[in-house]
Each structure stands twice: as structure tokens, then as C-alpha cells.
Write a protein that binds this DNA or RNA. Structure first.
Ligand SMILES: [Mn+2]
Ligand SMILES: [Mn+2]
Ligand SMILES: [Mn+2]
Ligand SMILES: [Mn+2]
Lengths: 219, 219
DNA sequence: AATAAAATTTAGACAAAACTAAAAATATTA
DNA sequence: TAATATTTTTAGTTTTGTCTAAATTTTATT
């Protein structure tokens, strides 16, 4: 089965939302996709007729197995292209998302497989998100928010929660990236800020907001 | 100015035809684009309103400077991606055209510039066609059809005229690619076939049809 | 339980890009 | 030059994906 760019974007949007909420509703998908609820309803009918989702009027919806398979395929392509853009073309990690948003719709199966091999079959994209393999299998890692880590414990940054360009740009200025090692030195009770030591740099202070969106695992 | 995928494909098609004929007519563009003359007329109106071509009803049409610039930009992207697919992903040269036909529409300017650098700013694509630089400048080489070359002269293959997958697949089986050195040993008057010696392989025979579509330059 | 609010769907419209069939313009030929 | 053939354009549809406004259904509140 093959899908249009628009169908693929919706499928991916639904997949993303149902990870958190199980059932998805029309308004939240419209917000996610930056479109109107009426447009979502139209697309839901089409995706249902293509047997990609369970959907009853007014009752919410979610992808079935075929839909999840399709979603994982788009996610795989998105993340492989992001990896390519950062590792091979030396893009900054806060610039690659919109480009991958286009590249993920290139249809050739063989292209994806060869790209995967060319890149060395990476397991995580530049933001620390797992890259599904060609069967849709996703690697899992145990990670915690930096806001839950005790003082003086050495940890490695594994992924980023909020992946807006604004957030990623900020982390870039802190010299924080996937794989960066750091330790928490102190918590300021006033606003929940954390003083942290990033690898061999001077200590610096990050807001609670930032800390909550940085995920880490043991060194 | 930015264009839709369809607009870009038409612009490229017109550019290709006007290289040979100067003025282009509706039916030949329809044939080139595998579409209907009525669809061509529709698009011509749109491209004229975008000031990309000179066009008077029933009188033929051709790209103006803005149109040529746009065409060269698409051609540049197409050929850079083809180079990437063959040189980095190890695709055979007869498989890359349809994939590049999609990739050429990815919009990021920075992507093209970084890809160009990553590839080492190549001057020719895998089929020997010149890659325009970012200003639209095209490298030229002096080349002749293999059918016009005298016997025993050592020449290097520089490009292919007919680039259908069928032709490219055939040349692959002859072990003929861009850069291959060869010599003509004999011409058969019966059907114009040529006996040629390809680098260090055994002599072989190619049809007049093939010879006419292989372009070569001095070693 | 009745009413108000929010969420969702339907109805109808629009733009892009294609198509077919018919009309109009141009080119060819007798 | 008149008749015929070819080329091109126009008129009217279709499909996909979007939108607004209105109607409907569900949920929350008095
Ligand atoms: Mn996308
Ligand atoms: Mn990512
Ligand atoms: Mn194309
Ligand atoms: Mn080529």
C-alpha cells in the first residue's frame, strides 16, 4: 500500500498522539497538524476506508496494526534522514526537522535501506529518538528526566523532550547534545533552577523547564 | 520565488526541449511530460502568469531568463542527487533517475549547498551530464558521438544520449560507464554495427543505435 | 433533567492539477 | 484557394486536500 504525503503526515501525527493518550480525538490532532477539525474528519474517513484506523464517529480513533506499521515506516525515514543531515552534511540539530519532514515522503524502499546501511544502521536520531528498523522494531533505553537525578551523579544526555528549534538552539548554546556527560551541583529553591557541570566546562545554570525536558541515562 | 512539484517538472521539461528546438510546442511538451495537451495549456497559463515564459496562444513558447534560472536549479538538484545515489549509496546508474525525480523537489537551499560540498562539488552526474553550479553555470566539454570516431583511436566515454533504463542496463552489461576507455576495431557495413575493444576486456559488438548514443572525448 | 458549552461532523465552496470532448486556429494538400 | 488534417485551446469534470459556517452530538453545569 502506498500513501500520499498528506496521508503520511496524518498517520504520523496520530501515531505520535496515541503513544501518550491511547485514543486520539479530532481537536488534538487538528492542533498537532496545524489544520482544522473539519479537515481532520475528512482525512479520518479516508484513512478508515483504507483500513488504517479504528474510528467511530464522535468516539475518537487510533491506528490499527496496519496503520502503526505505516507510521513506523515514516518515522524511520524521518529519523534516518535527520541522522544523515547532521552526521554527513553537518547541519546543526535544530535545523534538520523541517527538511526531514519533506525527505520522509520520498517513496523508494531501496533508498531507505541503502541509506540505513550507508549511515551504519544507527539506532538513534540526532535528538536521541529511537530509529525503528525495517520491521518496525524500536530500540528502547532506560532514561530519566534530568529533573529527577540526584546531585553529583554522573549521567549522559540521551534525548530531548521539547524539540522545538528554540529549545534545541538553547541547548546548543549550553553545549549540551546527545552523549554529553554532566552532573548536577545544586538546586535553587527559588525557581527550581539547577546548577550543572557540563563535561569539562565551567558550571552553568539551567531552568527547571529545561531540566524537565532533558533526558539522561547512567554513564 | 518558489514552485510546486508540478510546476518544477514542467519547467524542466520545457528547458529540456528548448535546448534542441528553441521554441517549444504544446504537443511535444505533452509527450515529454506524459500528459495531455490540454493539461499543458493549463500549466502554460500558470507559468506565464508567474512570468517564467514567453507564450502566445497558438505560437509556441520558451522560458525567459527567470524560467531558465528556475530550470537550472532543478536540473542541478536532480544531478547532484543522482551523483549521491551512485557514489555514496552505490546504486546502479540505471536505477537513480526516478528517485532523483522526487528528490529534486526538496526545497531547502542549504541542503543543496551542503550536499554539493559533501559530494566534492562534482561537475558531472553519473550519466555524464553537466551539473550546473549554484549560479546556473554549466561546465562544457567537447565530445562526439562514438559513431563519428575513426578506427583505432583511443577515447573515453563522457556521456550517454539515450538514458532510458533499458539503454543504461545494456551498457552496464557491456561494462561501459562514464570514464571507460575504448577503441573502435571495425565497422560492419551490413547494419552499421561496430566492433569495439572496451578497456582490457575481449572485443565485442555494439549496434549502430548504441554507438550513436554513446558520447566520447579524447583520452 | 434542562440548559449551556465544547467537540465533532456535515454541507458546501475553493484551488491545484489532471482528464475528455468539443471548438477554434493554424497548417497542409489537392 | 478551398477542403482537410493537425494542433491547440476552451469548457466542463474529477480527485485530493483544504477551508468556513452551520448542524449535530456529546459533555459539563446549573
Ligand atoms: Mn512530512
Ligand atoms: Mn528527531
Ligand atoms: Mn521531478
Ligand atoms: Mn542523469
Amino acid at each position: 500500500m502506498s500513501f500520499t504525503t498528506s496521508e503520511e503526515n496524518y498517520i504520523k501525527g496520530i501515531f505520535h498522539l496515541q503513544q501518550e493518550t491511547g485514543l486520539v480525538n479530532t481537536n488534538s490532532l487538528a492542533a498537532e497538524m496545524q489544520t482544522r477539525p473539519a479537515s481532520v474528519t475528512d482525512m479520518l474517513k479516508k484513512l478508515k476506508s483504507k483500513k488504517l484506523l479504528q474510528y467511530e464517529k464522535y468516539k475518537g480513533f487510533k491506528l490499527n496494526e496496519a496503520g502503526k506499521k505505516a507510521a513506523l515506516d515514516v518515522v524511520r525515514k524521518h529519523r534516518l534522514w535527520e541522522f544523515f543531515l547532521v552526521e554527513k552534511l553537518k547541519f546543526d540539530w535544530d535545523k534538520v526537522h523541517p527538511i526531514a519532514e519533506e525527505l520522509e515522503h520520498i517513496s523508494s524502499e531501496e533508498l531507505v535501506q541503502r541509506l540505513d546501511n550507508f549511515l551504519g544502521n544507527p539506532s538513534f536520531d540526532p535528538h536521541g529518538d529511537p530509529i525503528p528498523d525495517k520491521n518496525g522494531k524500536i530500540p528502547v533505553i532506560k532514561q530519566q528526566s534530568l529533573s529527577e537525578i540526584p546531585f553529583k551523579k554522573n549521567v549522559t544526555v540521551s534525548s530531548v523532550g521539547n524539540q522545538t528549534a528554540q529549545m534545541l538552539d538553547m541547548l546548543k548554546h549550553y553545549n549540551i547534545a546527545i552523549g554529553t556527560q554532566l552532573t548536577i551541583l545544586k538546586k535553587f529553591e527559588f525557581d527550581g533552577s539547577l546548577e550543572i557541570k557540563v563535561s569539562k566546562q565551567n558550571a552553568c545554570i539551567i531552568s527547571e523547564q529545561v531540566a524537565k525536558n532533558v533526558f539522561v541515562h547512567d554513564v
